[in-house]
Design a protein around this nucleic acid. Structure first.
Lengths: 125, 125
DNA sequence: TTGCAACTACGAATTCTTTCGTATATGTTT
DNA sequence: AAACATATACGAAAGAATTCGTAGTTGCAA
């Protein structure tokens, strides 16, 4: 259920580029790190067996696609992360992230808007 | 550098309870899951070798303490997590967390306050 | 002082992830 | 058709994490 880091890399390519062949995924991965073609192949085969990917088998080559959505996957990862790293305290995680990473004004505004929605019924800040 | 999940469990006990013997840590871990005494011992020995724990050796038993702070550790974990799970987008992570976990009014207020600080110089929301 | 209880050290099995080499099949080009 | 490029499948090695059994030491109690 929980994708490993390598698996996440592959999922990201597929989420971003849509259904792809091993070659395409491998080329994409190669941009950011050293990885052999058969390594990528093997990873994708295993992910297929695990149900993380679907694939369409043409004669010549297979076309793989993500079997899980980015949203669902991130939700699961966040749950796990809040639990293991912050002992369940989501707000501590949020504080930590906000304190430590630059966000654009627009992003901050979006977060504020969301907060206000979660907040509806209380006097504005 | 990156503690595993098991190592985080142990660090949490030490952060919470302060310096402890293997027995004390083991008892604490036993509350939440099945784990043998020598398993806890081995984990702590390895963490000591890795530099994650310090220890004081009395004749009879050793007293272990966390060699890293909770803050520093969480900072590192967050960095890694933002990178692997959210491709570097901290604000997406924040949105996801806020949307998916209940936070108390007080926590929401704290987050707002922090946002306003990050924001100083702009018209209030 | 003899023996029991509690402790450490260590080796080893298991499982998971990542990696790649090699064998083999299949199109394509000359 | 022969040779070449490109696919897949598969086995296996290497490294990390987790688990626990066993051996051996040490303090304490009867």
């Amino acid at each position: 259920m929980k994708p490993t880091d390598s698996e996440l890399e592959i999922l990201h390519v597929l989420w971003t580029s849509g259904p792809s062949t091993v070659r395409q995924v491998h080329e994409s991965l190669s941009l950011s790190r050293d990885i052999g073609y058969t390594t990528a192949l093997k990873l994708m085969q295993i992910m297929y067996e695990k149900g993380l990917l679907t694939r369409e088998e043409t004669n010549r080559s297979h076309t793989y696609a993500a079997a899980v959505t980015e949203e669902d996957t991130q939700r699961g990862l966040v749950d796990r992360f809040v639990e293991t790293a912050f002992r369940g305290s989501a707000s501590k995680l949020v504080m930590q992230v906000l304190g430590q990473h630059r966000a654009s004004q627009q992003e901050l505004d979006e977060i504020k808007k969301l907060l206000n929605q979660l907040n509806s019924g209380n006097e504005p800040n």
